[in-house]
Simulated scan of single mutants.
Amino acid sequence: MTDTNAQTSGPTAAPPVLVLNAGSSSLKFQVVVPETGEKRAGGTIERIGESGSDVADHAAALKRMTDDLRADGVDLDSVPLRAVGHRVVHGGPDFSEPVVIDDAVLERVRELSALAPLHNPAAVTGIEAAREHFDVPHVAVFDTAFFSSLPPEASTYAVPRDLARKHAIRRYGFHGTSHQWVSRAAADLLGRPVGELRQVVLHLGNGCSASAVRGGVAVDTSMGLTPLQGLVMGTRSGDVDPGLHAYLGREAGLSLDEIDTLLNKKSGVLGLSGVNDFRELEKRLADGDTEARLAFDVVVHRLKHYVGAYLAVLGGIDVLVFTAGIGENSIALRAAVTEGLEGLGIAIDRARNGARSRQARVISPDGSPVVVAVVPTNEELAIARQTAELVG
């Protein structure tokens, strides 16, 4: 299935960047002009390689994408693309900045699949197909890059050091492109230099993560070696006792792969309530569903836990930012997370919080010690701008 949502307009001042996010059975794409932020077109192709689908692989998906874009007035065969920017989830210990993709880079991304088996193989497949299809520079932008700045005390797990070195075990963090974009956009919203702000950023979507950002530099984050650690998410458990794996193996007879699937795909809000769409959870909550209530309360409890922890890590905060699909749209969740935190300087204005808007905005009262803001994320534009900067 394709959803192009083209937004064509007049001539642009600079060539666009094609941003690709390849999943195992999907391809998300946008054609973006980095300088202006203009989205010329975008969409998603789904069910790639699945039974009954007419899109056999990612090469076929790229052809479908170009055909659909052409039908909507964006002909990638005639538009002078500047480059293709690829979202890559895991850069491991090797990549702390965007990088132009050559054969060696691609092979290293492939080798890092052990750290992100659900994500990196799909990225490699998408990159290979795109390099065949588009004869322009290709750039990898890594979810983990923003968190390469974590200090050793935040990135190190208390496991035998030789084992950690051999297998590259550390906290890497994810959603870094979003956290970096949002922390800078929040500073712009307030008209203050990002270098003077202490921020806690809550990226809340189907996947959720929190970060502590001091002076525009990440100093802590909730996700770890994999995207499973941290907050309660749509289908991921977030933090659990590490002994749970051994316990489930002994008592429930589950294999490691079964436990991994359980915690990544069958837990979180879905496991607690039976639904993983937060909008549906809130509907059930309004209807008095007790399982929905518990799921909502568990999500809020974990969020407050991280907000408090990062306030301590930063020695106080200037800005608390909500972003991504749930963070930008759930009035109830923002209210619940900030409730009772007035003693820490964190409060929201009820009317401001309840106002619907797609714009970055402050929702705390005037003069509040901590500014609470809602800042839409734009990972595609961030990737496009980092790609354009790298290729000149």
Rank of each mutant, 00 (worst) to 15 (best):
A71E: 12
S24W: 07
K166Y: 00
L256F: 05
S364C: 11
A140N: 01
S51Y: 00
L248M: 10
G238K: 08
S273L: 03
S25N: 09
G49M: 03
H175M: 12
V89A: 14
D239H: 09
E251M: 02
T44A: 13
V194F: 00
R82K: 14
K28D: 04
I169Y: 04
I169P: 02
T144S: 09
G207H: 07
V100Y: 02
R131M: 15
P11W: 12
V213N: 11
R284C: 04
V321P: 02
A295C: 08
D103F: 12
G288M: 04
V74P: 01
A130H: 11
G173Q: 09
V19M: 03
R284L: 13
L228C: 00
V370R: 10
T2K: 11
A22D: 01
G91Q: 03
G345Q: 09
F29S: 04
S209R: 07
A332T: 12
A252N: 00
R171T: 10
V55Q: 03
Q386N: 13
Y247R: 08
Q199F: 05
E282T: 14
A373T: 14
V240S: 05
V375F: 12
R131A: 10
F278C: 11
S211H: 04
P11D: 14
K28T: 05
E132P: 01
H58I: 05
F147W: 01
W181P: 00
G49H: 03
V88G: 05
V240H: 04
A295L: 06
A309R: 14
A373P: 12
R161F: 05
Q180F: 03
R385I: 11
A246I: 00
G52M: 05
G23K: 08
G253Y: 01
L314K: 01
I326C: 06
I48D: 02
Y310N: 04
E35F: 07
V240A: 08
V374N: 08
G325S: 12
S53V: 06
V201M: 03
V89N: 03
Q180H: 15
E153I: 11
S255M: 01
P369N: 13
G176P: 08
V109N: 09
E35D: 15
R40S: 06
L281Q: 10
E389S: 15
A292Y: 07
E379V: 12
G343N: 03
D67V: 03
L18G: 04
V99D: 06
E380P: 12
A61D: 02
P151G: 10
A116K: 05
T66W: 00
H203V: 06
V298C: 10
S368I: 10
P98K: 08
E111N: 12
A324M: 07
G215Q: 07
L150A: 04
G249K: 05
V31M: 06
G243F: 03
H305R: 15
L27V: 07
P137I: 09
R170P: 02
A6S: 14
S183C: 08
T261V: 12
H301K: 13
V55R: 02
A123V: 01
A384S: 13
L204N: 06
I363N: 10
K283W: 00
D162S: 14
L118D: 04
D67R: 04
L281M: 11
Q7V: 14
V136T: 11
E196H: 00
G340V: 05
Y306K: 03
K166L: 09
F174W: 09
I383K: 10
L163K: 07
P365H: 12
H119K: 05
Q229K: 02
R250W: 01
H245V: 14
S51D: 13
E282Q: 15
H203E: 08
S9F: 11
G238M: 09
